[in-house]
Design a protein around this nucleic acid. Structure first.
Length: 264
DNA sequence: AAAGTTACCAACCGCCCGGGT
DNA sequence: AACCCGGGCGGTTGGTAACTT
């Protein structure tokens, strides 16, 4: 025996929502809340709609905190970074982008970002620079603890061969979510970000610090400690320790700056 | 100007999971 | 333990606006 449908499909309206329906739903939810039961809500609110349809309309469009309009470069990078690690977990990705919905992120990825990422990946000479960890299992390291050190310096996995200070690189918290358990940290002006739930660290650069043409890049240190430029699809190798300037107050001290892509 | 194609995005569908009974 | 039900999620579709031929 199959499942009973959630509503009587013959007696519910489908398709685009009218402004009147939007107003009815908005007024009802703002006055009464959802009452923990979306299935019963349309009847109470006087809407000839399926409960699921009401839920979707509210969550994806009518909620007051929804952010409409184009995605920013920073949002692009966050989406690419998490997609690279977790795949199409749209709700997880959306939870890191305040005001964005999973549907928004999914649509944006499918219509724009996927092509952009593919283009940049091929441009990045991926054939000569294969992902050395493509067949490796996902990282199993325990989540890193949140410490003051992470807020003011490099996480331990980046400190190998690195002796300089890094107090010029600030890290600010952004979009921390207690719902998903994933916290993404976005550097103030280039520097590091760490998801303390997965232990994955990212680094971005100031515009122009990588040869003048990059508008900042996001790199993933989560797989085997080798930096991987998510946007270009390039893997990088560590800078020779003699090129690192301990104590420098600039980004020159960062051990992965001015490095060459692997295989090139 | 018309027809065809592509891009975008709102909405739907069906499956899965977890809580309640 | 088994079943039911609602909520949540990701995949897909359909309508339409924008663009190209």
């Amino acid at each position: 025996m199959g499942r009973a449908p959630c509503c009587d499909k013959a007696n519910v309206k489908r398709g685009p929502w009218s402004p009147e329906e939007d107003a009815t739903l908005r007024n009802y939810v703002q006055t009464h809340g959802i009452g923990g039961n979306w299935i019963a809500l349309p009847r109470k609110a006087g809407l000839r709609r399926c409960g699921k349809s009401c839920r979707l309309r509210w969550l994806n469009y009518l909620r007051p905190d929804i952010k409409h309009g184009g995605f920013t470069e920073e949002e692009d990078k966050i989406i690419c970074a998490i997609y690279n690690q977790m795949g199409s977990r749209w709700s997880v990705i959306a939870s890191q982008l305040p005001g964005r919905t999973d549907n928004d992120v999914k649509n944006y990825w499918n219509t724009k970002l996927k092509k952009k990422a593919a283009k940049l990946h091929s441009k990045g000479n991926a054939a000569n620079n294969p992902n050395p960890f493509s067949s490796a299992p996902p990282p199993t390291a325990a989540p890193m603890p949140v410490t003051e050190a992470y807020r003011h310096g490099f996480p331990p996995l980046l400190t190998q061969g690195y002796t300089g200070t890094s107090n010029n690189i600030g890290v600010s918290e952004f979009g921390a979510s207690s719902n998903s358990g994933h916290n993404v940290f976005i550097p103030d002006q280039g520097g590091l970000s760490t998801d303390h739930a997965t232990g994955i660290s990212y680094v971005s650069y100031l515009p122009g610090t990588r040869g003048g043409e990059d508008d900042g890049v996001l790199m993933d240190f989560g797989m085997g400690n080798l930096p991987y430029d998510i946007i270009s699809g390039l893997w990088f190798q560590e800078k020779d320790s003699t090129e690192v300037t301990p104590g420098s107050s600039s980004l020159d001290e960062f051990p992965y700056l001015n490095i060459k892509p692997q295989g090139l």
